[in-house]
Design a protein around this nucleic acid. Structure first.
Lengths: 209, 209
DNA sequence: CTTATTATGAGACATGAGTCTCACCATGTC
DNA sequence: GACATGGTGAGACTCATGTCTCATAATAAG
């Protein structure tokens, strides 16, 4: 039982650090390692024993109200309108991104600094938005031809997730409110354009089943 | 002639700092302020007199095959078609982003690590794409009502610059070729949607002159 | 009881960012 | 020649990151 106790000790220390980091970030701060350590009542040196850098500590801190899975997001949504559904998906992801802005910024920064490759097979990016977009379009999938569907999926991805937040906040300096208005209009316009393109291509019967 | 001399002095010092920073970055390094200053044979204190932070210095360092100014890009382009012009602007910026991918990734990463907010009105990001987008839409400006124009500008910005490259490369894992196809389709679709929205709002006379 | 082992705390240390002050010097003017 | 001005260099200073060493507590094993 000896090692089990040690393991528990280590596990608790690690968890305390992560939850302290999440707590501070949730409070709108972008905490230093010293602040996180103090919040967790752990010495700074120990914090560095568990996490090699501030960025790793931040990146591993649990996200608030994690992204809903496509299943639970569309569980009792009878709608098949792709516009409505894509808007709903974007709204959910937007809320999550807003709630975790500092942490997501750091995760993105970290993924950029690497040589653009993955390391040790661990993907630096996990693609949250792809599944959401597909789930949103799924009931109307037959209304798009294949090439249009691919274009649409990829185009919509530009308005989901952290990068979209960065464009809106840092580049355009929009308020969260305006940012959502832009994204909402753009994704609906793209869906309509996709439907239009498919209609034009096949004369109303875009895809054989 | 006194002030002219002073101005030249300042201009040369500033230019030396910027070219030193570009030189070091082209050599693959991620230089410190002290290194840039030494390379430019200028004291570190003076470097801070010209640039409030390392980020700003890096951000203003000249890029390879810098972005064409809107003027020279559209100098002998008689077209007033916003679709054609926005495509042209995107193509130019896309080429520049491709040619400077590592440097731009680093600049984006650095800008993300900051306390997320600008301080004292000094933008962390310099907005290259804004001027290009406005210049592309300018001849057709009268065909958009004001609110649609703002929506369109902001939406188009999502397909310009480094963030768009990151989405396409890291998230969607598209080839540069496919990435361009997606962006081209999307920006044209958005322009058309903007025209349509303005038409719908005002019945064909979207904006009084 | 004695002795390793292990997590931790405390603190020194090096480096880079960013700020600030003081001295220097070349250029202007009186 | 005396003097103000504006760009510059040198260096001290604060703070945060990240590394390191040493001491101390508690637990594990002899």
């Amino acid at each position: 039982m000896s090692e089990a106790w040690r393991a528990n000790q280590r596990h608790r220390t690690r968890k305390d650090l992560l939850s302290a980091a999440a707590r501070l970030m949730k409070a709108g701060r972008c905490p230093t390692v010293a602040e996180v350590a103090e919040e967790a009542r752990i010495s700074r040196a120990t914090a560095y024993r568990y996490f090699p850098s501030r960025e790793v500590l931040m990146a591993e801190a649990p996200l608030d109200g994690a992204v809903p899975t496509p299943e639970e997001l569309f569980a009792q949504d009878p709608s098949t309108d792709p516009e409505e559904r894509i808007e709903r998906a974007e709204k959910a992801l937007h809320a999550m991104v807003q709630a975790n802005e500092p942490q997501l910024r750091m995760m993105l920064a970290r993924s950029l600094e690497l040589p653009a490759r993955q390391r040790d097979g661990i993907p630096v990016r996990q693609n949250r938005r792809g599944a959401l977009i597909e789930a949103a379009l799924q009931p109307a999938r037959h209304r798009f031809d294949d090439s249009t569907y691919e274009l649409l999926r990829a185009a919509l991805a530009h308005f989901f997730g952290t990068e979209s937040m960065v464009v809106a906040t840092d580049v355009l300096q929009l308020s969260p409110r305006d940012a959502r208005a832009v994204k909402s209009w753009a994704i609906r316009a793209l869906v309509r354009a996709g439907l239009e393109r498919s209609r034009g291509k096949t004369g109303g019967r875009p895809r054989r089943r």
